[in-house]
Design a protein around this nucleic acid. Structure first.
Lengths: 329, 329
DNA sequence: CTGAAAGCGCTTACAG
DNA sequence: CTGAAAGCGCTTACAG
């Protein structure tokens, strides 16, 4: 391995000088600079980031914890983050939890070992353990998708979005509206979206059967199964179903198509997420678009800010949503 | 920051001893171990990975270079890699090139600075510069998606897949078959798939008009535009179109639907990739499934092997493909 | 404009 | 079973 010492020797200067030209800091004569540059070019020397980090306590690496890699939500978010980090010379260390809550905590620890400068967590719950772990973190943490008190968070207005969507269905004359949600440990998706739905229903004096509220696990298949349970168990005839995520909505959609229902004639299907697939199916899914790429960008921006100012930036940032009316309602 | 020295002091032992218990190496009395463990628990000490890497020359981080983050191909591949790396305690440093060839080279360099243990490159070209850069790399490189001589590569049999698909169209009675490809700098997708198509056509003595062969840039929109050009410029009536990727196929499909063509009655559309969306559209896209997750897993396995044996593992591995017949042909 | 020296937090022969 | 010491490759006051 070739080191700064080799370059110093080759260029006939001290390693201090080499360090200066590498980092472009302090005064340096043109002559020295050139000799060092030549030596570097000749040898293909690249400075060791570890030695550097050991001194400077800075790695220019941001750890990112995601629930799943292969979903539209994750990839759009990461895409947005990459955009701003790249321009600042930061890189991203990626880990996934596969929706395992324990792993969120485990990865939070692991990433600190890696001495990342900061951690962005796409969170799926707000358990006390998680909160404690975040608060104990030696490096700044920014959370996306869940609101955590005293921690900078980028969130969407899940309650308003779900309420808005439910309202829309009611305005369009739907009365018997089912709901496919997720576990309530996920506050944003499991609690707030559901509440938006139930509140809107209640506000209009609409009754909900127990069987109308089903749970999935974010997957397409679970949406399919939830839809099936709903149809089999419900006493009154449903005329609409609201899935908390597009993927589960897709599953419901598939079940209904396969069983000969007319969408939206017999029953409407709507989701949240504006996934790519939701746009191409026929009838195309009415859904709500979240600006995931923007959430990624914002989270990166906030991280950069915290990193620079050192001051605790504890705000939350609520991003807009956008109703995408298509043909399934 | 709390360091190994603090622990040593607290536990009343030398830092050598602390190092031993951290790494579980060498003999150690139960008494010493316990005192060190207690001190660690009490302080929440985590060893600096940088200091460690500086000594051991090992980081347990693998750099991954992707063209795009938010595509099914990338996310499935990364998902597969993560699966095997995670079990071995490796983590992934992610970078994307946005299909910019220069960035592939730039990131190759950047990642070496980061002192990653190895680099997995999802390549989109096989230019001499890229090959040179790979050969110069100080850390092992594994390539996915392109075959590069003397570098371990995980590839798909693009030629056979495309030829097979074209054959199928011909067997089904199609004679006027258009093709939407990509730039030929991409050997796998741009050259081999196209050749599979032209060879199959030629083998059956089928004529191809110039206008039948169009290029896109992997995006859905580019597929749409290519389809449009093809329809406008071609003299004879097409009865099928083969897109080199599902995304472009989706674009073509959209164009045809929007312009009132019956798929597959008037014209068949097929692709390669088995993207999620391709399955849900109506008519569902006939396509070829590549085992991307497996490619990810294999690439990780090969990397681990190279890392352990230190011996140059220069084989290429060709993964199977799988025809998925649906309704668009 | 330049260099000698200390130090970042670890690991690893070596000696006991 | 344990510790003193050297060294990994850098950066950064400090002195000149």
């Amino acid at each position: 391995m070739i080191t700064i010492n080799d370059i110093a020797k080759l260029a006939g200067v001290s390693r201090t000088t080499v360090s200066r030209v590498i980092n472009n800091s302090g005064y340096i004569s043109e002559k020295s600079r050139k000799r060092v540059m030549d030596a570097i070019a000749e040898t293909g020397f690249v400075p060791s980031q570890h030695a550097k980090s050991l001194r400077t306590k800075q790695t220019k690496i941001i750890g990112v914890i995601l629930p799943k890699i292969s979903t539209d939500t994750s990839s759009r978010t990461v895409d947005g983050m990459t955009e701003v980090f790249e321009a600042q010379g930061y890189q991203i260390l990626l880990t996934r939890t596969n929706l395992d809550r324990e792993k969120e905590i485990e990865h939070l620890r692991l990433l600190q070992n890696r001495q990342v400068d900061g951690i962005i967590l796409i969170a799926t719950n707000t358990s006390q353990e998680l909160v404690d772990e975040i608060k104990d973190s030696k490096v700044p943490v920014v959370v996306v998708g869940q609101e955590i008190h005293d921690v900078p968070s980028i969130i969407f207005d899940d309650y308003a979005a779900a309420r808005h969507m439910t309202q829309l269905m009611i305005e369009k004359g739907r009365r018997h509206i089912g709901y496919i949600g997720v576990d309530e440990e996920d506050r944003s998706v499991g609690v707030l979206r559901k509440q938006g739905y139930t509140d809107a229903m209640a506000a209009h004096g609409l009754h909900m059967e127990d069987a109308w509220i089903q749970k999935g696990d974010f997957s397409i298949d679970s949406g399919y199964a939830a839809m099936e349970r709903m149809m089999l168990a419900s006493y009154e005839r449903l005329d609409a179903v609201f899935a908390a995520t597009d993927r589960m909505g897709l599953g419901a959609w598939k079940y209904l198509k396969r069983h000969g229902f007319d969408i939206p004639g017999d029953i409407a299907v709507v989701g949240i997420g504006a996934s790519e697939t939701s746009h191409f199916i026929d009838p195309a899914l009415t859904t709500i678009e979240y600006a995931h790429a923007q959430a990624g960008r914002e989270s990166a921006l906030v991280m950069l800010q915290v990193l620079q100012d050192e001051k605790e930036f504890c705000d939350k940032k609520v991003l807009d949503f956008n109703l995408v009316e298509r043909d399934s309602l």
